[in-house]
Design a protein around this nucleic acid. Structure first.
Lengths: 113, 113
DNA sequence: GCTCAGTACCTAGTCTTACTATGTACCAGG
DNA sequence: CCTGGTACATAGTAAGACTAGGTACTGAGC
């Protein structure tokens, strides 16, 4: 991040990026390279590939996703991640926290502006 | 944080808390103890005092706020922070990043739910 | 006088997470 | 053969919130 939005966005992404990826996976399974590309398309232009792979490994180790290796027509095999029950719970929790934050910030923005 | 919202909120606060404090200061000057108390009242129940003081020192060193020492009726003198021009710019930038994130996440939530 | 609670500030060390930079491997087209 | 696209991985760094303390000043109650 940095080009599309401010330099502070790196810090603001922390924790949120995980929710974003869980949300992406809740619509359909995906693999790392694909997730990175999709997010870059959606405006996270400077998102580092390594960040996504590290994140995927983390959520796998926490048991939020199931993993399957699928051969690719072009290039090495893909590691396809599927959101499981634990992951869905975590996503619900993420949306709860997110809602709390947006409510607080919406109010602050009213007061401030 | 933790009681009010999920355990993941600690990471999600990173970067955002700074924007929250800048927004608070944009309505009127305030000092650390007061800011901590206000935020706790507003639902950030587990917010650590030390976190706020560290943050205030950071934004002071970045030149986003002006500081004035004011005697208190009860207890040691207060360090009152006032948002200055640089701080207001930073706040604008914060809101820009925040809007970007909320737009992305709103869309993800639609798709996902 | 002394203690305790409330006010007010500060800091060293830890943990998590995003980024940098780089490396590996597989494949097709020129 | 060699470049570019696909696909995954990791060691090291930086930033920020938390833990767990500590200091100092004041007034109320015993």
């Amino acid at each position: 991040m940095g080009a599309t939005v401010g330099r502070q966005s790196t810090e603001m992404l922390k924790g949120i990026l995980e929710g974003i990826v869980l949300a992406l996976l809740s619509t359909r399974p995906a693999y790392g390279y694909e997730i990175t590309a999709r997010l870059r398309d959606q405006g996270f232009t400077d998102l580092a590939e390594g960040t996504v792979y590290a994140l995927l490994i983390r959520i796998e180790q926490r048991g939020l996703v199931d993993v399957e290796k699928v051969p690719s027509e072009k290039g090495p095999p893909r590691k396809v991640f599927t959101l499981n029950a634990r992951g869905r719970e975590d996503l619900v929790e993420f949306w709860r926290t997110w809602s709390f934050l947006t409510e607080r910030l919406d109010q602050l923005r009213e007061d401030g502006a």
